[in-house]
Design a protein around this nucleic acid. Structure first.
Length: 763
RNA sequence: GCCGGAGUGGCGAAAUUGGUAUACGCACCAGACUCAAAAUCUGGCGAGGUCAAACUCAUGUCGGUUCGAGUCCGACCUCCGGCACCA
């Protein structure tokens, strides 16, 4: 049978399912059931993202053992999933905190280390003071901790990184392979995050010096308008350029002030921030015009992007314009607007007045003016030619830069996969040999919460022997970011008990890529970028043969509830007191009604507003269908050949024709909508079919053979099509209709007869 | 500021390629059943208008294309989300 891989995002075992999980799993299970009934061989696995901060926080605050705490949570949540009746293949269950899983995190780390993709460097890292740990760039976006919201600080630490920047180009280019199946808003955020930008590096020679300042620009066509070169306060050339200068101390003081503002409190500057700068007294030479322009240092130039230096073109860049206004730097216009009527007209000269009259930077493309031999050319043309010219002159080249930076995976935490590295006084940094994996976490450690790696306080872990020289050595005490665990877990499901490899490539060839992945869009950049990166690394290791791990992605909306005493709908949470306990819902209404409601109440990508009366409506519907099935139970389960022969040769009655038409129209509509995951309209269609059945109003006691036939046809279709949304009820009703061995054995997804589904008008 | 997405009853929402706007459900109203209530069943339910109908007006606003526009085009308004000195 053809395979289908339906996957929901790996949950963190916090201890309790919330309604967002219920929605997620109801969607995945509906799809899994639909595909099974269509004859697919469906893999529908689940597991646990069981490393991470909360277990450690529980250990710090309440002294519990993180492993025991985690296992208890998993046991409880597994029970909740089973009460919901999600059809998972429990034989494939995995958990990230178990050595048989994280052994392979370490294995991948070593493979990357061998290939130079994992490396260590001293680096200013994003530091969350509240949690006492390092965060990745993604996790500290906007200068606040993604988990606790604390303001992130900068600290210098030796950190392990994965070279995701080596794959930046592919992470953008390969989007075209998945754009048909992924939501545009996710792809957009990924593109933004990778931040690919085409432009050029240009070298400005420094007057009376052998040094050159390299800038990055996307607008080389504006270079004749450059009236300054501006460096970041962190720029490494700064000290050399200022050696012996009278202004040296002033500049150093300025840089220190800015550094304090930015690092202290970790605040990321925004556009409202005032631009501050200082003239270094150094002069640079524009390689195009030969003009000499001043070199400034300013707070608005970021060291982390491009080269940490820019050419300042106030006439054609808003930031440079603002900076020039403040410090009275010249503003020289070198691009003129092109209008369609006058595309051939060149404005070669502009008066000084016109330039000074600019109220804003003109940032569009246009025609170059006051640009020497390039005057009169269109921006698009000039950019290419000027980059080539610069290269020929040895003063630059066309270049592509990216915003994404390498993935820092070091965490000064206990509850994670240990980085499999040993430091030997003689041999230096030594990778743990593969046959010594896994590097097992000790049972416990001292949880001080101070930010020191807890593993550093466990001598029997730290002290080891060097694999190379057998001398005494120390283990690395950092653990890995938990996003490592979730970057490849769905490959492990294919072959979860393999002890010789993360998975057998054969089994991955069969099951992957994932046909449908379902989860919240909060993972649009972090998890979904990392897992795409990891897949490309696995491809280069020969483990998989494709570039992209997920063919179709669905991002579900949040489940919200009214906050007591307000008109606000917010995501359910304990602190707001607007949470709904899935177990209580199951106890009060049943798992099927809860699942039916969350799928019916809104399109899955929309926010879902919780409603008690809504779920009661789902109960009512299921009860009505039940009642009808039981009314017909006896007549339908005592099948005679006559009953199954169809409406015979006689002219069918209007009512019979109408019911059959509705039945087949519904089958066609539901089948089509399910392919597009429009569960809300599917369920509405099933309700319509049921209403039509009610209107048909035949009495089982004296129904004709024809009546029995059409009622059976309609009820069977209804029950089978209800299975993805209410599997328990459907199973029971299927048996009541006279079938033995259950739905999976005796039921198939119904087929629509287009002839019967044809609308009345056409007859 | 830039980039996405969305505006349809009291509410969640439907509406193939432009072709009966408001399917389905919730809430509400009336009736049946009941001593009564709940549950259940039946009917009603965009607004105005009428005994009832006819009719008029309604898919954020203003224009346009078309025999015909929720849907297409132009301008604008509002809300939600993302990014935010990325050169």
């Amino acid at each position: 049978r053809p395979k289908f891989y339906a996957l929901e995002m790996l949950p963190y075992p916090s201890g309790f399912l919330h309604m967002g999980h219920v929605r997620n799993y109801a969607i995945g299970d509906a799809l899994a059931w639909y595909k099974r009934l269509q004859g697919f061989n469906v893999m529908h696995p689940i597991g646990w993202d069981s490393f991470g901060q909360p277990a450690e926080q529980a250990a710090i605050k309440r002294g519990v053992n993180p492993r025991a705490w985690t296992e208890e949570n998993i046991a409880h949540m597994r029970g909740q999933m089973q009460r919901l009746g999600i059809s998972y293949d429990w034989s494939r269950e995995i958990a990230a905190h178990r050595p048989e899983y994280y052994k392979w995190d370490q294995w991948f780390f070593l493979k990357m280390y061998e290939r130079g993709l994992a490396y260590k460097k001293m680096s200013p890292v994003n530091w969350c003071p509240r949690e006492g740990t390092v965060l990745s760039n993604e996790q500290s976006s906007g200068g606040i901790c993604w988990r606790c919201g604390a303001t992130v600080e900068k600290r210098d630490l030796e950190q392990w990184f994965l070279r995701i920047t080596d794959y930046a180009e592919q992470l953008v280019a390969d989007i075209k392979q998945i754009e048909a199946g992924w939501p545009e808003k996710v792809l957009k955020r990924q593109r933004d995050w990778v931040g690919r930008s085409e432009g050029a590096f240009i070298d400005f020679a420094v007057k009376d010096s052998k040094h050159k300042i390299r800038v990055f620009t996307t607008r080389i066509d504006t270079i004749y308008g450059a009236t300054a070169v501006v460096l970041s306060t962190e720029h490494p050339l700064l000290d050399k350029l200022l050696a012996g200068s009278a202004l040296k101390d002033d500049v150093a003081r300025f840089a220190e002030k800015i550094r304090k503002q930015n690092a202290g409190g970790g605040r990321i500057m925004d556009q409202e921030e005032e631009k501050l700068g200082i003239n270094t007294g150094v002069l640079a030479i524009n390689p195009f015009s030969g003009e000499t322009i001043p070199v400034w240092v300013a707070n608005y130039v970021l060291m982390e992007y491009g080269t940490g230096a820019v050419m300042s073109v106030p006439a054609h860049d808003e930031r440079d314009y603002e900076f020039a206004q403040k410090y009275s730097l010249p503003i020289r216009r070198v691009i003129e607007r092109v209008s369609h009527e006058q595309e051939s007209i060149v404005h070669d000269t502009l008066s000084e007045d016109q330039s000074l009259a600019m109220q804003h930077a003109f940032t569009d493309y246009g025609i170059l003016v006051n640009s020497g031999e390039w005057s009169g050319k269109l921006s698009e043309v000039a950019m290419q030619e000027m980059a080539s010219w610069a290269k020929a002159q040895g003063s630059g080249e066309a270049a592509v830069t990216f915003r994404i930076r390498d993935w820092g995976i070091s965490r000064q935490r206990f509850w994670g996969a240990p980085v499999p590295i040993i430091y030997c006084p003689n041999c230096g940094t030594v990778p743990v040999p593969y046959d010594q994996l896994p590097v097992v976490l000790p049972e416990t450690a001292a949880f001080t919460g101070t930010g020191e790696s807890p593993l550093a306080g466990v001598p029997e872990f730290v002290n080891t022997t060097c694999p190379k020289c057998d001398g005494p050595a120390r283990r690395e005490t950092d653990t890995m970011d938990t996003f490592v665990d979730s970057s490849w877990y769905f490959f492990r499901y294919c072959d979860p008990r393999n002890e010789a490899a993360p998975f057998d490539p054969e089994s991955a060839r069969h099951w992957t890529p994932v046909d449908q992945y379902i989860g919240g869009d909060s993972h649009a950049v972090m998890h979904l970028i990392y897992t795409r990166f990891w897949t490309k690394v696995m491809r280069d290791l020969g483990l998989v043969s494709f570039d992209e791990p997920v063919t179709r992605l669905l991002t579900q909306g949040m489940v919200t509830n009214r906050v007591e005493g307000t008109d606000e709908w917010k995501a359910m949470s304990k602190s707001l007191g607007n949470g709904v306990d899935p177990d209580e819902m199951i106890a009060a209404f049943g798992a099927d009604a809860a699942r039916l409601f969350v799928l019916f109440a809104a399109p899955i990508e929309n926010e879902l507003r919780w409603s008690e009366s809504g779920i009661e409506g789902a109960v009512r519907f299921l009860r009505r269908v039940y009642t009808m099935v039981w009314r017909w139970h006896e007549r339908l389960s005592n099948t005679t050949t006559e009953d199954q022969s169809g409406p015979g040769l006689s002219e069918p009655s209007t009512g019979v024709r109408a019911l059959r038409r509705k039945t087949h129209q519904t089958i066609a509509r539901v089948t089509k909508d399910l392919e597009h995951l429009h569960f809300n309209t599917n369920i509405a269609a099933l309700m319509e079919l049921f209403n039509e059945l009610s209107d048909f109003n035949a009495n089982p006691a004296n129904a004709t053979a024809e009546d029995v036939f059409v009622v059976r046809e309609a009820l069977q279709a209804l029950v089978v099509m209800l299975t993805p949304f209410a599997p328990h009820a459907a199973e029971e009703m299927w048996e009541a209709l006279g079938h033995e061995g259950g739905l999976l054995k005796s039921a198939r997804w119904p087929q629509a007869d287009p002839e019967l589904a044809r609308s009345e008008e056409l007859e």
